[in-house]
Amino acid sequence: MTTSTWTTREYVFAAMTAAALLLVASILIPFTLPLRIPGLANAVNGLFGSFFLVIGLIRLRRPGSLILITGIYALVCLAISPVISGFVMAGGILGELVCSSLFKGYRGTLAPVCGAVLYQMGMFPAAMLLSFCFLPERYGEIALWVFIVAEAAIFATALTGSLLGLKVARELARAGRLRLEA
């Protein structure tokens, strides 16, 4: 990502998408944390988070779009918690690497869905890894099947959210607010 790559509108759109992600997280996460079910917060957040991400990626389209959105989101989270910031960035980097190398950006519908789902799925292992670094004996006990089930749940909700995002993107296009590719 170079300084001159992005226009004012793209920065603003990425910022507004990041604000929407933050809003969703601030509403949903407090309800899921006390339950202490591994991956629950990510799974619930994945439904709405990937919804906004897909719309954001469809609008921005260019390689680096996911990093731009998650980068701004991670910067905002840095003022709240460096741990959150860390796994947000990890998810963003994973999604971006895969989508940039496979699809060369976010044109069409598959790449945005793929990017949003990978971002959500990438955050959970990163969060687990960070926790494992600090508390190895506690997080080392979590069985592999728990991890797999959690990731499957995140995949399912993120995919649902992404498909919902695609549906709304079509409605936005019908209202003349978003240009979709044929």
Partner: peptide, 14 residues
């Protein structure tokens, strides 16, 4: 600068 202003926008419009 775009990134810095984007951050400001999130705080302002959140």
């Amino acid at each position: 600068p775009g990134m810095v202003v984007a951050l400001m926008l999130v705080w302002r419009f959140f």
